[in-house]
Amino acid sequence: MSVVVVNPSASDDYFRFFGLEQHFNLDLSALDQAYLAIQREVHPDRHARGSDTEQRLAMQMATFANTAFQTLKNPIQRGLYLCQLHGVDARLETNTAMPAAFLMRQMEWRENLEDQEDDLGALEGLAEEVDQSKRDTLLEITQAIDSAKNYERAAELIRGLLFIDKFAIELDDAISALV
């Protein structure tokens, strides 16, 4: 039995590897189906009786498929990956500059969290606002990448989304502490 490599020439592009178009707004069910089809072909158990080379190749392809799948499934990782594919480094570690309006909103959220830490209703209302902000940001990222092909803007929006996600986790923790 030999290892069937779905598209070895696509190994430099996770989207091509799964036979998908390079879009931020990704059909996750199509991604799931493509991933499962590849895993059925390359799963190491399927090649347990193959040669050492075949087993090693199957393991490498399965590992690559897992990495590609996890990257494309997560919107932040998918956005960063698309920016990278188009030569834009989001510089997450070094570029923390954000627009003033965004920073002001973050400060307001933090103040509300501190001021209302014992008010479940207020925190749930804040959580709805944060969730709406996340949805709005995801739509802006979709527009920046899929329509405008503006990967610099997308990288800026993704940096903002990371801040929103971090705050949302803190807010969820505060709500959980009250429940």
Rank of each mutant, 00 (worst) to 15 (best):
M1V: 07
P8K: 14
A10G: 14
S11C: 11
S11I: 10
Y14T: 00
F17N: 10
F17W: 15
F18I: 00
G19V: 02
Q22T: 13
H23T: 03
H23C: 01
N25E: 14
L28Q: 15
D32P: 10
Q33P: 01
A34S: 07
Y35I: 01
Y35Q: 04
Y35A: 01
L36M: 06
I38Q: 11
R40H: 07
E41F: 02
E41R: 02
E41P: 00
V42N: 09
V42S: 06
H43G: 09
P44A: 10
D45I: 04
R46N: 14
A48D: 13
S51F: 05
T53M: 04
T53R: 06
E54Q: 03
L57H: 01
Q60Y: 12
A62R: 10
T63W: 13
F64Q: 15
A65Q: 10
N66Q: 15
T67Y: 07
T67Q: 08
T67C: 00
Q70R: 11
T71I: 06
L72Q: 08
K73D: 10
N74E: 15
P75T: 04
P75R: 09
Q77R: 04
R78A: 11
R78H: 03
R78Y: 00
L82S: 00
L82I: 07
C83R: 04
C83N: 13
G87V: 00
G87K: 00
R91E: 10
E93H: 14
T94F: 01
N95E: 15
A97E: 14
A97R: 08
A97L: 09
M98L: 09
M98S: 09
M98I: 07
A100K: 14
A101T: 06
A101G: 11
F102W: 04
M104D: 14
R105E: 07
M107W: 01
R110W: 05
E111F: 12
E111N: 10
N112C: 07
L113N: 02
L113G: 05
E114G: 08
G121A: 03
G121M: 03
G121P: 00
G121Y: 08
G121E: 03
L126C: 08
A127F: 11
A127K: 08
E128Q: 13
E128V: 08
V130P: 11
D131M: 07
D131P: 01
Q132F: 09
S133R: 08
S133H: 12
S133K: 12
T137R: 15
L138N: 09
Y151T: 05
Y151N: 03
Y151K: 04
R153E: 08
E156P: 00
E156M: 07
I158Q: 09
I158K: 13
I158R: 11
L161S: 14
F163T: 10
F163C: 04
F163K: 08
D165R: 11
K166L: 02
A168M: 14
E170L: 05
E170F: 02
A174Q: 13
A174T: 07
A174F: 03
S176K: 15
S176Y: 06
A177E: 05
L178W: 02
